[in-house]
Design a protein around this nucleic acid. Structure first.
Lengths: 204, 204, 204, 204
DNA sequence: TTCTAAGCGAGACGGTACGTCTTGTCTTGAG
DNA sequence: CTCAAGACAAGACGTACCGTCTCGCTTAGAA
């Protein structure tokens, strides 16, 4: 495999003293992002990232001791930019908007592949599982939890249900992500009503 | 690495002519089962399975061209024996029983690890994804679909909702499996009510 | 196969930075030497060399992209030490001494097996053939050529004959090596006279 | 690799009872011949021969316990047809003609590759070496020996020299074969004079 | 200023696994 | 007893990554 030098990899980068070189960090992340969007989770390797970024493997391992950390970093890179939290005062509507924007984010950015990689990685090592469950999940579901809690405050659902609804929502979205059915956006509206607990006769 | 001979590996097995040797097949499956329950998805390799089973790698690849196929085989080995489909005439109750028995199956047998491995593998290769989505999933959700369809026949839910409820249920269960929270059996009852769509005031 | 640790394999060797570790190189060569003298050309595998040397296969392939290169390295390791170029001012005498010392070298060191391996390997792959013909042969026949050229300078043979005599000599020596008749040292004197072109009546 | 079925492989051949089926034998030899001329010594495998010939591997191993035996069979198949023993009453001339015809035979038929394979194989196993030295060589040098003996009878060389000259001749020819220089036919005349021992002043 | 501490690229190192290939043995079932 | 077919154990092939290590360089800030 020939190293594909590109705009990203500023060649002949070097140390800028006894602290991190943000250029190097950016190059690594960009290369990782590029690689995972090109080849997916398979075909993603630290070796190749280093090659493309023109970085030493050590440099990468210094910042991201685990592949999971790297995936999280790729994921986090852009998430906040693209996914917005709607505030329309209606639970189902908010869930639908939020889910739709997230699924589109997963589809259109390396983020989807990165999350798949993170989940897959978590099945392999205990640390990765910990990172996923205890660090990634709480952070990434904060918005969702906020939406649900607001709904509860408005009386649309009960507060005790929030946790379970989070699990349901995450499970459903991951499932669609993992089996590659993010294109099925029609399901979103139907399932969000279900999760929000809208009575049957209203759902027609 | 010294080969660890064990009960499983009937030594000095050989060909029984121009068709499969069931002994060899059994030894391979047993070794695979054992290995995945010991070391999990990481640390599972065809190489090691062959070593333990006293089988040639070719033999394994002959039957299971993909790791995914092997995971499915391990999973299928015992599933039917352990997971039974309840028939009590009440949707929530049936879902709770079914889910509980499945979660316990995942927890107590290599099956859980095998399924995690299958899902992880599916993130890596296109074939594995196909096997998971188009072969494994339809088969393995048939029982669930039956439970839901029966409930619809009794008028507990509407028939059009079945597909989405299957997705919700699978998503939820996979999620708990993937983040290692199968021990949280209390959630089952609450979430099954939610999935079944039992009105809020009844859920108390 | 249980790894047989031996004197050769300095355990727990590691990198010494971004350049070759001569210790590792030595261990590989020693293991290869040992292996070929033990098991011959068949039974020589990079895998086993790596095992014995306590080296990664990659390490070996890094230096010796082809088995042929490895054979050449083994051969070259000691050749110069053991085979000396005589200088007695008489062509036949020099050829006899040189041939005898070379045959004994082939008999008593892994070198013989290595050369046989190199020749056999060259029948299999084009690169090996190239290495043998264009790299190995010219180098290794330089001494012989020198002996013959000196003889020509003294008028014992004609200069135009040197190339053919080299071919004759190499052919004869390889032949004896390849069919395992290096013990037949009596033939040396007779054949060297023939190659040198000593008239028949003198040969009695 | 896709099996290339061809005219050679009589499909759906079967046993003709309790003795060898000459059709099968022919198919095996033809396939072997074809294979070695196509891919050379490397890329020659019993497996592939069986595939092409539509023969069972067992069948091949029954007749040719060693690869060497198979090579000899391929070689012998055509040798007698193509190489003729000249009889012109002049040693050098006979040697030149004989050598030329043999080199051309090696170049233009699978025979050359087969002989290279046989020699290479002989470096690997003791049986192959035995077959080469004790069975193949005496047979195949009978003609040459006859030529030389006749020359001795005519007084051109001495009878005691025959053995050494055979070695010289075989060594030289093998050498040219093994390093792939059979095209160098000019060398033949010069070297045959040398082997025949024609005095220098005549060689001009 | 000089020294120290860390970051950085490069890439060698011992390993492990991959999926393919070949070897020589074995058995069946048909003839 | 022969044959085609092909399963089987074994293990080598050459490639790809893993995560660790050391080198030799660069720079910033502490002494």
């Amino acid at each position: 495999m020939i190293t594909t030098p590109n705009a990203v990899s500023a060649r002949k980068r070097t140390s800028i003293g006894s602290r991190r070189n943000p250029e190097a960090e950016a190059a690594v992340l960009a290369a990782a992002r590029e690689l995972i969007s090109e080849k997916g989770y398979a075909g993603f390797s630290v070796e190749e990232v280093a090659r493309r970024a023109g970085a030493g493997k050590t440099t990468i391992y210094r910042w991201y001791p685990t592949k999971a950390d790297l995936f999280i970093a790729i994921y986090t890179m852009e998430r906040s930019t693209f996914v917005t939290v709607p505030d329309v005062g209606n639970l189902v509507e908010e869930l639908v908007q939020y889910t739709t924007s997230l699924w589109r984010f997963w589809s259109s950015h390396p983020a989807g592949a990165a999350l798949k990689g993170l989940i897959a990685e978590a099945q392999g090592t205990e640390e990765a599982l910990g990172a996923l469950r205890d660090k990634f999940l709480p952070d990434r579901t904060a918005d969702l939890r906020h939406i649900l809690t607001s709904g509860a405050a408005r009386g649309e659902i009960r507060l005790e249900e929030v946790d379970d609804k989070v699990s349901l929502w995450v499970g459903f979205s991951w499932f669609k992500l993992l089996i590659g059915e993010l294109h099925d956006e029609d399901a979103i509206a139907r399932v969000m009503m279900q999760i929000a607990g809208v009575p049957r006769h209203v759902q027609s």
